[in-house]
């Protein structure tokens, strides 16, 4: 019963995530940028832009220049998250790849980095007057949801273990459109329920910053307006 419920939940969540995100990305990709608006320091070549984007996504370069506290918490949270997610790939592969195994030991500590970062970011929303002013309930809820996911995950990892083999069997089953039995530990159910919620809200929330950053004209444009004429299709029509 619970297994079936969770199976349906995950299928629905996956479809919403994939379709929702694809639609958003398509919209971003199709909307033209009518003018050249890269912000200084703007690279003058494509390669330069790729490097700039790499530094933004991996190191949060602009954020580092901007605010060291937000950078520290935000970077710890995101990098921890990537390691944790790599670690999680083992639930979705029969034969775990060598690089996933490699990430296992780091992943354990990564969850602490994630929690530290999230709590730091959350604390700022209460303690810093300016950030308190700009926070909406949804900003708090997003952090609450992530703390719930991380907290429940760490409980399973460090306190009350669950049957990981069985979880893996369940996940692999879902990928083959079969419903296997899911362990019914409450903490696991909380973890998975929260994860499904995160997947569902992803394409309709501020989590769109993840695809959004790659489409930001002030970051992804090449600074060469004098050399190459840039023109949007709708603007071209004004010329005829």
């Amino acid at each position: 019963m619970i297994s079936a419920l969770y199976a349906i939940l995950f299928w629905v969540a996956t479809v919403l995530l994939v379709v929702g995100l694809a639609m958003k990305i398509r919209k971003y990709a199709r909307t033209p940028a009518p003018l050249k608006i890269p912000t200084t320091p703007a690279p003058t070549t494509r390669t330069g832009v790729v490097l700039r984007m790499f530094r933004e996504v991996i190191f949060f370069e602009s954020l580092f220049k901007s605010n060291k506290w937000i950078w520290l918490f935000g970077w710890a949270f995101h990098m921890g998250m990537w390691l944790v997610l790599i670690r999680h790939i083992r639930y979705f592969q029969w034969d775990v790849s060598w690089w996933v195994s490699l990430a296992q030991p780091f992943g354990t500590y990564a969850s602490f980095a994630m929690l530290f970062g999230l709590l730091g970011l959350w604390a700022r929303r209460f303690l810093v007057e300016r950030i308190r002013y700009i926070s909406n309930p949804s900003d708090h809820l997003m952090l609450a949801l992530l703390v719930l996911i991380v907290g429940s995950g760490m409980m399973m990892r460090f306190v009350v273990h669950t049957d990981i083999i069985q979880v893996k069997a369940f996940m692999l089953g879902l990928m083959r459109l079969r419903i296997e039995t899911l362990p019914t530990d409450p903490i696991l159910l909380v973890h998975l329920g929260a994860v499904a919620a995160l997947m569902i809200i992803f394409p309709i929330s501020k989590l769109l910053h993840a695809p959004g950053v790659f489409f930001s004209p002030s970051r992804n444009q090449v600074d060469n307006p004098r050399e190459v004429r840039h023109i949007a299709p709708w603007a071209k029509k004004l010329e005829s």
């Binding site: 940028a33 009518p34 954020l63 700009i134 501020k206 769109l208 910053h209 930001s216 709708w234």
Partner: peptide, 19 residues
């Protein structure tokens, strides 16, 4: 008509770096 407008409206996470 303007990707910047669309993406900037969606992407902000209210981190507070600009405040």
């Amino acid at each position: 008509k303007n990707r910047a407008f669309q993406v900037y409206l969606d992407a902000c996470v209210k981190c507070g770096a600009c405040t």
